[in-house]
């Protein structure tokens, strides 16, 4: 199992490393290929997510093709897909609370890691509030159309969510004061480095520094 702390270090190194590439080398795919072997069940969900995101990537590549920059177009396509595939494989089936907790173990300022924890908590709460409002609209037979009335309803939804945000934030603030909150959240998770973390790091470094088999058009 790859620790999330190392997942962040790996993705940071891999994506910034690939950003400096001016040519396509097949070896740059070593890290995502290794991860695909380690997490075969994550391959299909990751590809599904990639399909949708490729609309923008293809548009950018097409823009380069129209300027007759074929190598650049291919580089963008391969680089973007490699980084995104690697990201999806790393974070597939990971809980948002685990992700935010791992960020705090990276040595972020205490206020920022506390903020990450609360964001994770509030995402569930606000999403739930939004689902309740959506259900209420369904019950009242609201039909979405391109009309000013529809936009007014959506504006009221946004307004209601803002009000809920304030109320929730106020409750949490009072709870923090009541519990004499010192500005730091403590996590019970482990921070040890596993063998798999080190192997992944080796593959990431190999993807960045090894230049094997150049691809040209």
């Amino acid at each position: 199992m790859i620790s999330l702390r190392f997942a962040f270090i790996s993705i940071l190194l891999y994506s910034f490393g690939l950003a400096f590439f001016k040519e396509i080398w097949l070896s740059m795919l070593l890290a995502p290929l290794f991860l695909a072997l380690v997490k075969p069940k994550s391959i299909l969900p990751s590809f599904k997510k990639l399909l949708f995101l490729n609309i923008f990537i293809l548009l950018v590549s097409l823009s380069a093709v129209l300027s007759k920059e074929y190598n650049l177009a291919l580089l963008i396509f391969v680089r973007a897909n490699a980084i995104l595939f690697f990201t999806f494989l790393l974070f597939d089936k990971r809980d948002i609370f685990e992700i935010t907790a791992s960020l705090s173990s990276l040595g972020l300022p205490t206020k920022l890691s506390t903020l990450f924890f609360f964001v994770a908590k509030f995402i569930f709460i606000i999403k739930n509030e939004f689902q309740i409002i959506k259900k209420a609209l369904l019950v009242r037979h609201f039909k979405r159309k391109t009309t000013l009335f529809t936009y007014k309803i959506y504006a009221n939804i946004v307004g209601m969510l803002v009000v809920k945000c304030f109320e929730r934030a106020d409750k949490l603030k009072k709870a923090m004061i009541l519990r004499n909150f010192g500005g730091k959240i403590y996590y019970a998770g482990e921070n040890s480095v596993t063998k798999m973390d080190l192997v992944l790091l080796c593959f990431v470094l190999a993807s960045i520094f090894l230049k094997i088999i150049k691809v040209n058009i």
Binding site: L115, V119, I126, F130, A169, K173, M176
Partner: peptide, 22 residues
Amino acid sequence: NEEIPLVAVFSALFFIGSFIHV
């Protein structure tokens, strides 16, 4: 410190904004 919940809740709202389809 007491402003962290407010920033966090609006960060969550920005995150949820991508699910509000108009």
